[in-house]
Amino acid sequence: MTETEFLQWVRGPLFDIATIIMVAGIIVRILQILLLGRKRNLAEAKGSAAAAGLRTIITRSVPDRNTYRRSAFTLTTGYVFHIGLFVVIFLFAPHILVFQDLLNISWPALSTPVVDATSVITMLALIAVLIHRLIDPVKRFLSGFQDYLAWLVTFLPLITGYIAFHRLAPPAPTMIAIHILSVELLMVLFPFTKLAHAFTLFISRWYNGAISGYRGVRS
């Protein structure tokens, strides 16, 4: 297989398979959660479940002062790499084209030096959280294989993208293909690992807020 054939294979059939697994996987996981259902709450409502649910989605996204004091490092690095991932994935021109292909809508891109710097900061933050996970006895005790796998498949697209962009490892067609391949690995594992928090977190936050709201207490 030549370099061009490899790139075409990764952009074509493999990307199709990865997209199908990711989209179907996310929908299956969401339906599994939602269709399991909850027992009807027979107690009289003392407040709005929906309003409290929506409020909690927002309030839980802002760090609580006391929590921040206890885990300043975890929260800071966590925010840095999540925002960094958002910038790198959604505001880099070649990436926007992929979403434009899917959704037929486009948005302005950031300049490449900004995205480049963000990707470095994101990788540093990811390395920092991995080291902290390995050093901190509690985090290490709580970590399993899946946690390290999730870290790896998040880190790989960043490092391969950085190498491809800066041509640190020629040839370019192969490096771009490896980068896309690493993204496909992330897409396939996304619904079936803890990475699924990207879509389940809003459901769980809403539910946490809603049960309190129904009882008329603050969540």
Binding site: R11, T19, I20, A24, V98, I176
Partner: peptide, 16 residues
């Protein structure tokens, strides 16, 4: 160069 060569919209709909 960065875009997939398959029909990604159709694939997404079928997968959904």
């Amino acid at each position: 160069l960065s875009t997939p060569t398959g029909d990604i919209t159709r694939n997404t709909l079928y997968a959904a």
